[in-house]
Amino acid sequence: MQIENTPTLSIEHSAGGAAQSVMASGVWQVHALSQKGLLKRINRSFTDLKKKPSLAWDLSQVDSIDHIGAQLFWNAWGKKRPSQLKLDPRQEELFARIEKAGSHTLPRTRVSPLNWIIVLGAGLLSFFEHLHGFIELIGRLVQDLGRFIRRPATGPWREISANIYHSGFQALGITALVGFLIGVVLSYLSAQQLSQFGGDIYLVNILGMSIVRELGPLLAAILVAGRSGSSITAQLGVMKVTEELDAMLVMGISHGYRLIMPKVVALAISMPLLVVWTDAMALIGGMASAKIELGLSFRYFLQKLPDAVPLINYIIGLLKGMTFGMLIALVSCHFGLRIKPNTESLGRGTTTSVVTAITVVILADAVFAIIFSGVGF
């Protein structure tokens, strides 16, 4: 359906065929310009007319025009009034505003050659600010633990139990699946290499030491950091956005005692158990792959495992799990309490929390490797 008063351009030519004047008529508003194919034809005509700056323009026959239509003419004129222009008095104000807006230029921002020092300084200040807040959070946790030990009857047992369920029990499925698959892959790759040198019997040593001492705790911690760590940060962030944390303070309820300490204690209890669970699933996957690849029976695998992996490695694995769990909970709570009351900060804080928790876990694992480098071999 064609709209009435369609915008049109009439071009008058001289005797030699050159264009002398352009007269516009009709409705030059967005609803009229949106007709199918019309805007392309008008832009094509304007492109041809841009090469003729001496043209006379007559817009007095235009019935109505808005900013969209006026901007089309302004762009066709090269963003300046043509020398020969006839306007309706009602159009003067509109084009005057466009001309005034085009005269403003944005200030040029100079980038200092020493800008990297400013960026580096801001990064260092942010790092030490986070470090100060993290140490302060640990201090409050120690005070809350002391209060909990002195008066265990008034402690947040229900919150601890709920967090053990959410962070520990509900993570059994994903840790079992990933642990089993990692055991299968590691056993399969190791068996291919060992079979070339006749060292099939050493597969138990490789799987046992790598899974019990390193992969089991680290894998469980990374999964919990991505799953439970993000949940903790998002929960505290939403409570910050909805002002529930402020309401708790008004009612005299401590954030640390009712929110942070239960999460830290729950993950300190859950993580060693998840490490044992992940180790078991990974070893089962490794045994299944060894049975298929090398023909090693389950009985042989279980008989050789205690000799291949000294008891101290299990203790180191459990100690790692407890430490990783506490670090994940502390990092998640730290970033959750720093979220600002807006959705953008919530998403950015949750992402930063997960990345930081995984980084801290890997750094802690490196520290464990250095401290216990001569133990358990």
Rank of each mutant, 00 (worst) to 15 (best):
T105P: 00
A101G: 10
P107V: 04
E99G: 05
N115C: 10
Q84P: 01
T109L: 15
E129W: 06
P107L: 12
E129C: 05
V119H: 11
L125H: 10
R90D: 07
H132W: 15
N115R: 14
Q91S: 10
Q84K: 15
L87A: 04
V119F: 07
N115W: 06
I98R: 00
V111W: 04
K100R: 15
F127M: 09
L106F: 08
L87M: 04
A101C: 10
K100W: 09
F95Y: 09
S126F: 11
Q84C: 04
W116I: 13
I117A: 15
A122N: 15
V111K: 08
G102V: 06
S112D: 13
R110Y: 08
R110G: 03
S112H: 07
L106M: 10
K86D: 08
L106E: 07
G121L: 05
G102Y: 06
L87R: 03
E93M: 12
H104V: 11
P89L: 04
G123S: 08
P82S: 03
G121V: 03
A101V: 09
E93G: 08
L106A: 13
S83E: 13
E93C: 11
A96T: 05
E99K: 08
K86M: 12
T105Y: 06
P113C: 00
R97W: 15
L114P: 01
F95R: 02
G123R: 15
A96V: 05
T105N: 14
S126A: 12
L87N: 03
R90G: 11
K100D: 03
R108G: 12
H104W: 06
P107G: 06
L85F: 02
H132P: 02
N115Y: 08
D88W: 00
K86V: 13
S83V: 11
T109V: 15
P82M: 05
E92K: 12
L87S: 01
I98P: 00
K86Q: 13
T109F: 13
F95Q: 01
G123L: 02
G121N: 07
G102C: 05
T109N: 10
H130D: 03
L131Y: 02
I98E: 01
R108S: 14
N115I: 14
T105M: 11
H104P: 01
H130F: 10
R110V: 00
A96Y: 04
R110N: 12
Q91K: 02
R90T: 13
V119P: 01
L114E: 05
F128I: 04
G123N: 15
L106I: 13
W116G: 08
K100C: 08
F95A: 02
L114I: 07
H132L: 09
F127Y: 07
R108P: 04
F128Q: 01
R97E: 15
H132F: 14
R97A: 14
R110H: 11
G102P: 01
P82E: 04
R110C: 06
D88P: 02
L125R: 07
I117W: 01
Q84T: 14
S126G: 10
L106N: 11
F128S: 00
A101Q: 14
P107S: 12
L87V: 01
H104M: 09
G102T: 07
L120D: 03
